[in-house]
Design a protein around this nucleic acid. Structure first.
Lengths: 224, 224
DNA sequence: ATAATAATTTTGAATGCTCAAAATATAGAG
DNA sequence: CTCTATATTTTGAGCATTCAAAATTATTAT
């Protein structure tokens, strides 16, 4: 069985691969995300390669194998189902559940996971709008782009917030920027590096780097 | 912070102390319960003594300090609240929740624990009738003795099953021997080493070693 | 009191994960 | 094409936990 350290590395590699759309991940980036010194990442990656969870070309980077991806998806499934459970059933705030799930994702058996899944009615998205992989490793797809590159004047539905930082999530919540909410993009000023949106009457200004973290889809889009 | 290994040792020492009513625990017994070789227990115990969780007299045995006891009670609180939650909310079988809780007890934060406690209405006993220590470390007291040494002819209410083995728990459940149930002791045969009881019409025979694991209290006893 | 037995501790080594610091490879600038 | 800055890997070491096997101590029976 994979230790929770291994699960964390694999999960992180998966997430890095997502960002760079499938490119090889560099050992340095991985080390930075894991909060370890580069040498540590190197030796861990070698171990992961020995267990056939990643393909590793020294100095060129690494990529998950099929098995590694399966493991990553399984960990993410646990993480995200737990997050949703904590919010919907136990009433924790969405800004704090990421931290909690970081530990729980390694301690939950399939038996309990399936009960949670059933209790929640096999949901497809967690409280931040992140897709919950199915038990068989299928990821619900979502077409969405960030507020930072949406056309001005149109309305959208917020589908996902891609930052787990609790300060940011609290800010988003205070301003009504949560998944499911409809917003209208009213102005973009590339000099000021800012976007103005309207959300339930209020007017909110976002710098580009914040806007990038909020993903939306067309108003007409599928039910969530 | 205590590692989960440390938490497990401390918990086990506490449970051993309970059985031997406060006597010093021997390193050998501890090793056996933890499933490690005696030398391992010795070195762990030394480390626990360094952290002031136990008092340790080489060759004479060990005892929890006040701090150690606090930690044990906190772990037990997590374990037992989780067990009850798994049974009452997620619908797991009482025979399987002990295993599940073994991992979860180390991964649950106080924040989540308090939510669970509130959700369950600050319960005092887990599904096996084991007392749940309060957040401040108070253990609800229960007066009870085992079926093995109860007078014949009287009725009692089952209050606790002191064996987490899932086979035994399944057997108990099949025969209606669960906390809250009323039984009547109809015969004791010390030659055969057996007790006969009646539970909801049925007649069940128990060897002494099984009978010892089932604790009862007077019919009139407090609500559970 | 002594020898045998049982419990405990010590020693030396392994595993998994980590760091600090030195060595090495690669890419870009001149 | 060579030099330098940057990324990566290697090396040596430490911590927590474990085992196997040897050494020590305590207990019991004679």
């Amino acid at each position: 069985m994979a230790t929770s350290t291994v699960e964390n590395y694999i999960k992180q590699i998966y997430l890095l691969q997502q960002n760079t759309s499938g490119e090889r991940v560099s050992v340095g980036k991985l080390a930075a995300m894991m909060g370890v010194v580069p040498g540590t990442a190197t030796s861990m990656v070698k171990a992961l390669a020995d267990s056939e969870l990643v393909e590793y070309e020294p100095r060129a980077g690494l990529r998950l194998t099929r098995g590694g991806e399966q493991l990553a998806l399984h960990v993410l499934r646990r993480h995200r189902l737990v997050e949703l459970f904590l919010v919907n059933v136990l009433g924790l705030d969405w800004s704090e559940v990421h931290e909690e799930a970081e530990d729980l994702e390694h301690a939950i058996s399939d038996k309990v996971l399936n009960k949670i899944d059933a209790y929640l009615n096999s949901p497809q998205f967690d409280p931040h709008g992140d897709p919950i992989p199915s038990a068989r490793g299928k990821v619900p797809d979502m077409e969405c782009r960030s507020i930072a590159d949406c056309p001005v004047g149109r309305s959208f539905r917020i589908s996902r917030i891609t930052d787990q930082d609790s300060k940011f999530l609290q800010f988003a919540e205070r301003n009504g920027l949560t998944p499911g909410v409809t917003i209208r993009i009213t102005d973009r000023n590339s000099e000021a590096d800012a976007v103005t949106i309207h959300v339930s009457g209020r007017r909110v200004m976002l710098g580009t780097s914040a806007a990038t973290k909020i993903l939306v889809e067309d108003k007409a889009a599928r039910t969530r």
